[in-house]
């Protein structure tokens, strides 16, 4: 019962957001503010995540395949394919569930419990359009951009790790990466990051928007937004893989 009610409230919020997404004038300024917060400000952490993911992948694949009778280029293929199809989207999704999801839920939660959302509404603002729409839009617009960043730095990091550790020469790495490069994988990863952006921002907005109970309530909303965001990302990852592969 409770879950159904939550789902209903969540869907209603999404419907309101969709309906009010036409009021561009209301959220234009906020949209750019959010695009910067979600996208531009997340670039450094995503670069870091990408580099480490790629280099760890390379070192570990090289270690695991050390004695196997396979060409070194296979490592390049493994690393770049894993990054493009899965890791760039999912790991950055999980990181951003913490960074973006927590921020959004805290912001909206605080605005809710300090009556700022009521204040907006009472002034005649559409608070969903003003607060939720730009955040969700920023999520679905910027996550694919961050996916690109994560992919490039992931593969670059893998290449560099192979070179500096001496386990995989760059030429072999690239050969494998190119040989097994299927454009559909990039489209798939792109789609994933799009979905993850939607999930993280909508869940965080929902939790924040309906927060209640003062500072503790905001804390609860933030925790739930982060945890549920991560769970739903993994779930969506599975569903997408089952549906589209």
């Amino acid at each position: 019962m409770y879950a159904l009610k939550e789902l209903g409230k969540y869907t209603t919020l999404l419907y309101q957001a969709l309906r009010s997404s036409t009021e561009f004038g209301t959220y234009r300024k906020n949209l750019f503010h959010e695009l910067v917060k979600v996208g531009y400000d997340s670039v450094p952490i995503i670069i870091l995540v990408g580099i480490f993911t790629g280099s760890v992948m390379t070192l570990q694949s090289a270690y695991q395949l050390e004695f196997a009778f396979i060409p070194l280029s296979t490592i390049g293929a493994i690393v770049s394919e894993s990054i493009l199809i899965e890791l760039a989207a999912v790991i950055s999704g999980l990181v951003l569930a913490g960074k973006v999801g927590a921020r959004v839920a805290t912001e909206l939660g605080t605005m809710r419990v300090s009556e700022q959302i009521d204040a907006l509404e009472s002034m005649g603002f559409n608070s969903v359009s003003f607060l939720v729409v730009p955040r969700v839009l920023a999520g679905i617009l910027m996550f694919p951009v961050l996916y690109i960043v994560a992919s490039v730095f992931g593969i670059g990091g893998g290449l560099a790790a192979g070179y500096f550790s001496g386990s995989v020469p760059p030429a072999d790495f690239l050969k494998g990466a190119r040989m097994f490069f299927y454009p559909w994988n990039v489209v798939f990863g792109f789609l994933k990051s799009f979905v993850f952006g939607f999930i993280i921002t909508t869940v965080a907005c929902y939790k924040g928007y309906y927060a209640k109970g003062g500072a503790e309530g905001v804390g609860r909303a933030t925790t739930e937004a982060t945890v549920m965001g991560c769970i739903y990302i993994l779930l969506a990852d599975f569903i997408l893989a089952a549906l589209l592969l």
Partner: peptide, 16 residues
């Protein structure tokens, strides 16, 4: 903010 977003998106598209 507009310029920052523009830079990010443009760079990402070029890199992609």
């Amino acid at each position: 903010n507009e310029v920052k977003v523009g830079i990010t998106v443009l760079l990402a598209v070029v890199v992609a």
